[in-house]
Amino acid sequence: MSTNENDIELLDQFINGQLDATKRNEVSKRLEQDLEFARELNQLKLMVDCVRISGRKRLLDEIKQWDEDIEDDIEEPEKIRNLGVFRWYYAAASVVVFMVAGFLIYSNINFGYDNIVADVYEPYNYISPTSRGGDVQKNQLSQFFMYYDRAEYTQAIQLWEEVDDAQKTDDAEFYLANAYQAEKRYSEASDIYKKLIKSENKYKMASIWYLALCYLSLDNPEQANDLLVELENENSSYSPKATDLLSRLNK
């Protein structure tokens, strides 16, 4: 049986799934019985695929044309631009950078003040509860001290935000500064210590000591030295510690 224009239309609709179930069954039956019709379908499928590939190529060419009309001052990031051309130089340079960085880190460990500070630093001992009450705010402050006592400084700092401002006394802030220092948040700790020193708080001597340690941790030995000298001259329980530390620093 030969195929005609209507057969091609039928096969087109068959390929595109545009036939209803009855028509589709009819075409399927005929495909089983009519070899020429089946071959026609395969050939049509192949041609349609090829036309589609060609269509896509045309569209891509058109898009490339659109692209040429777009003003473009976008530049590749430096690292990408250089990567293709200087791939090996880039790799070699990376190795050098890592080596230098490693050396600097190593140097800091060995030549900074971290070891000395680690030897003498311990967070201020929490001795007695300053407040134990029934209301929520007092409980939160109690919890802050509980965390501090357990050396759970991160939690203590987080809880501080929830403590009522009225409960945030200078004394309590001294422990907060200690918590910051224990967490290596030296700048925040220093700010509180400075405030307490200025206000002549009962923790003034302790604040001078801890602030000196903060300065050392921040690699600022000059300011640490001044504070330790001041502390050495005071009649304080921290004076012998200051003397000892000064002698270590001046070795």
Binding site: V48, V51, R52, S54, G55, R56, R58, L59
Partner: peptide
């Protein structure tokens, strides 16, 4: 070519 592309691709 245009007709077939319009019909089968687009």
């Amino acid at each position: 070519k245009k007709l077939l592309v319009e019909f089968y691709y687009h």
